[in-house]
């Protein structure tokens, strides 16, 4: 369970998160929507300690992200996929995926590689195991990014705008994989601009506006006229996004 309590985060004078309370239970597929600058990505980054908290607390299965030792436990439980992929450019696709399992989980090389190959197979990139990231398309890089995250056997998958730097075709190829994962029952928290995708896969939608949670509803209710759409800010956002 991920528990966020009264989370505040400021960058200098700019307060980006103004008191977030949120609990995510295992098995949930949560999408976080909101305009740019609403604090979505910052909140994600706070969950695995890439940003320190200004105040409040976040715990993952009881481990406190603000505690340096417990943070490593949090990070083992939560794997992140990034907007810009952020693969290690000097390592082959296979080594990108196995680096953390070998060095953090202590997996032996042979097993780690075998598992990485299986993961690559599941995203149809088994022929790319030995190339460098520079030789991949954006969509392929992101599929590797997903494999890298899954290789850590995460309890929670954090997706930070994972299709925002991809063209529609590549976006589609990544979304197919995420849908498959969602169906397999992994807990997923995803910051996204893909409204249709969010609607299709998530069972809960959180709408962030100017650093506060404006609505936190089951997906169907969020998109219904007397649910989320009753809130003018959300109705406006959705109509802008073509809903």
């Amino acid at each position: 369970m991920i528990e966020i309590k009264n989370l505040h985060k400021s960058f200098g004078d700019l307060e980006v998160l103004k008191g977030i309370d949120l609990t995510i239970t295992p098995g949930e597929i949560v999408s976080i929507l909101g305009g740019s600058g609403s604090g979505k990505s910052t909140m994600m980054r706070c969950i695995n300690g890439l940003e320190g908290l200004s105040s409040g607390s976040i715990s993952v299965d009881g481990f406190d992200v603000s505690n340096k030792k417990e943070l490593q436990a949090v990070r083992k439980k939560c794997s992140m996929v990034f907007q810009q992929f952020d693969l290690y450019p000097h390592l082959s696709v296979l080594d990108n995926i196995t680096l953390a399992p070998i060095n953090v989980l202590g997996e032996n090389k042979v097993d780690a590689k075998e598992r990485a190959r299986a993961l690559l197979m599941s995203v149809e990139l088994d022929d790319k195991a030995n190339v460098y990231p520079a030789q991949l398309s954006g969509g392929q890089k992101q599929r590797v990014g997903i494999c890298r995250a899954l290789a850590m056997y995460p309890d929670y998958l954090l997706l930070d705008e994972v299709t925002s730097s991809l063209d529609p075709e590549m976006t589609a190829e990544v979304l197919v994989i995420l849908k498959k994962l969602a169906a397999e029952g992994i807990t997923m928290i995803s910051v996204t601009h893909e409204i249709e995708f969010a609607r299709e896969i998530s069972n809960r939608i959180i709408f962030l506006d100017e650093g506060v949670i404006l609505s936190d509803l089951p997906t169907e209710q969020f998109f219904s006229k007397d649910g989320g759409k009753a809130e003018p800010r959300i109705a406006k956002f959705l109509s802008k996004m073509g809903e």
Partner: peptide
């Protein structure tokens, strides 16, 4: 590129590694 270092930290890799 600093972002890949963040990615590495997010996977609990130690500073030494």
């Amino acid at each position: 590129d600093k972002r890949q270092l963040e990615a590495a930290r997010s996977f609990a890799l130690s500073e030494v590694v």
